[in-house]
């Protein structure tokens, strides 16, 4: 809920590029990133945005069958033609030689005090759907073919579980940052495939692990909010309430857009839309560099054998 005067204050501030916390329109907040603190998970990462947003992502890998579980009485398909990535809906990709990523976003009770329970559920569903769509597919960065163990029957499934610990605005951007960090941190046990008596078997060696191939190409998300006639990056909660429309852009390190989606009740002029896309690309690439630097530092810390200090004390970026 936001009062008329607060809305007016924020809109006028955005117009002259002075936001409530002193940032200019395209300034991103400081972020704190930490990886590997959840030893039970195959990979984990926590991202905190200065101002409240706190996201924890855990990745668990498990062995599963290539054909995903179908809903209700849907039939399975064996199509001879090159399988298509249904880029525009949820992929029920039944490729015989690819692994899968399953994302799930949840809100912890501490983050839910602001919203209605129903809105939270809708929001989590929407984010889960968005993540599933972006990460499954060649545009998602992760090499899904490398996750295949036995073509046609077994593959690795990456379960990415996102927990929103606190809400401070701009959840989706933080979620993607944490996801990318967690994927960087994830180690998959090595699977060796053997053929014996015409049957194919695989063996998992827990001690030998490998990284997720393609994690660097995972995109980061930039959410732009239209307030008045201008747009801002990394909105705080009150700014999100003022925004008439929101554009979410996923950018990868090659500078390409991996997904684009608009939300919100208002419309955006096409010229402004094009401008927002350009802004998102630039900001996305800056963010990627920042995150890569942070991840490198994390790697050095882990290599030097230093234990993670714990939540909230890692270096700032």
């Amino acid at each position: 809920m936001i009062s008329v005067s607060e809305r007016d204050y924020i809109t006028k501030g955005v117009d002259v590029s002075i936001r409530a916390d002193g940032r200019s329109r395209l300034d991103f907040r400081e972020l704190v990133l930490e990886t590997g603190m959840i030893t039970q998970a195959s990979g984990s990462c926590r991202v905190t945005l200065d101002g409240g947003t706190d996201i924890l992502v855990g990745v668990k890998v498990e062995v599963g069958s290539i054909e995903p579980e179908v809903e209700a009485e849907e039939a399975d398909i064996l199509e001879d033609m090159e399988q298509m990535d249904q880029d525009d809906g949820i992929t029920m990709v039944k490729d015989k030689d690819r692994g899968r990523i399953i994302c799930n976003v949840e809100c912890s009770p501490s983050a839910t005090r602001i919203f209605e329970p129903r809105d939270i559920e809708d929001m989590c569903n929407e984010y889960s759907q968005f993540m599933n769509r972006v990460l499954n597919g060649s545009h998602g960065g992760v090499d899904l073919k490398a996750l295949c163990i036995i073509p046609g029957s077994t593959c690795w499934i990456l379960n990415i579980d996102v927990l929103v610990l606190d809400y401070g605005g701009n959840l989706l951007d933080a979620i993607f940052m944490a996801t990318r960090g967690a994927l960087h941190n994830t180690r998959i046990p090595r699977a060796t495939v053997e053929q014996s008596d015409g049957r194919v078997e695989f063996d998992i060696a827990d001690e030998e692990t490998e990284i997720i191939r393609g994690w660097e190409d995972v995109p980061l998300c930039v959410s732009l909010n239209k307030i008045g006639y201008r747009h801002i990056v990394d909105a705080a909660p009150l700014e999100e309430l003022c925004s008439s429309a929101r554009l979410t852009v996923a950018v990868n390190r090659r500078g390409n857009l991996c997904a684009l989606q608009k939300g919100g009740h208002g419309g955006i002029e096409p010229s402004l839309l094009a401008e927002m896309v350009q802004t998102a690309k630039q900001i996305g690439q800056t963010l990627l560099k920042r995150q890569d630097a942070a991840l490198r530092e994390e790697e050095e810390r882990i290599a030097a054998g230093k234990d993670p200090i714990g939540f909230g004390a890692a270096s700032r970026h």
Binding site: G137, N252, N256, K262, E269
Partner: peptide, 11 residues
């Protein structure tokens, strides 16, 4: 002259 919705996928 306003876009009400846009959704894109693919790189």
């Amino acid at each position: 002259n306003e876009v009400t919705h846009v959704i894109q996928s693919g790189e």
